[in-house]
Amino acid sequence: MTAVLQILFDALAVGSIYALGALGIALIFGVMRLVNFAHGDYIAFCVFAMLVPSTDVVAIVLIGKLPAILLIPIILLIGAVISVLSEMLVFRHLRNANPATMMICSFALGFVIQHVLLMFYSSRPKAINLWSNLSLPVEIFGARIPLLQLLTIIITFVILVALMWFLKRTRYGLEMRAAAEDFTMARMLGVRANRVIMTAFAVSGLLAASIGLILATQTGVADIRMGMPIMLVAFVATVIGGLGSLPGAVICGLLIGAASVLLQVFLPLDARPFRDAFLYSAVILCLLWRPDGIFAPRSAKQRV
């Protein structure tokens, strides 16, 4: 029983980070059909924002030293700002472009962010020590899990609930859902496109920043490429969840995390290095089973 519970917690701990990432990707995709490859770089950017720009090896933590009550809002704000800025500077000018063009632009933007960070901080990973007492383990029904992982799981669910409430109960949320369903129609019915899109970008940036905070606390390291693997998994989760379906993205993020933990646990040692090959084969099978995604909204049916 304890073993099962432990696996469940481990799976949730990995999965909830993916879920947060998938949510950030799915939000933007919902309103403007953009697969935002720069999302992973927002994550890294938020983490590096805690440090003083310097190519020295020893990192000088600046705003990362602030008390949590200040640090968290500032980092979240930075995430939102860089996300909204990229909308205003880049994506706004591509409203009528095809999805491939937007995707490549987002990739180019991520590339720029990455190399700007590289220039200001050099490539060596930097140490960040945030809230080290969060790393202490707690025991739940015999399963031990670091407090931070428990918090990550809780935070994910809180964010999810808050977002659901926001989408279902507020005017912005309503507009956003309408825009996700049918953007042109929503505009005709008086939804202000720019405002909806900006809100989506802001929320997506907040999510990226919160992943950054969680990762920095968990790993203690700032690395320029740290957001990339999460972004890729999140991207996959968004698609197999059903593009445009936020709960679908979240559930699939959790599922992929869980699958990866289960494979790690049950594969024999010799096959363990091939874990990701099994994982992605499963993704292909999943797509064949439900090409429109497991939780595809009816409106998302694609032609060709």
Binding site: D10, V14, L215, R225, L269, R272
Partner: peptide
């Protein structure tokens, strides 16, 4: 023995 990949977001299972 066990394996992981450098950029794994978490090594909880290991």
């Amino acid at each position: 023995r066990d394996t992981f990949v450098n950029d794994d977001a978490s090594v909880a299972a290991q």
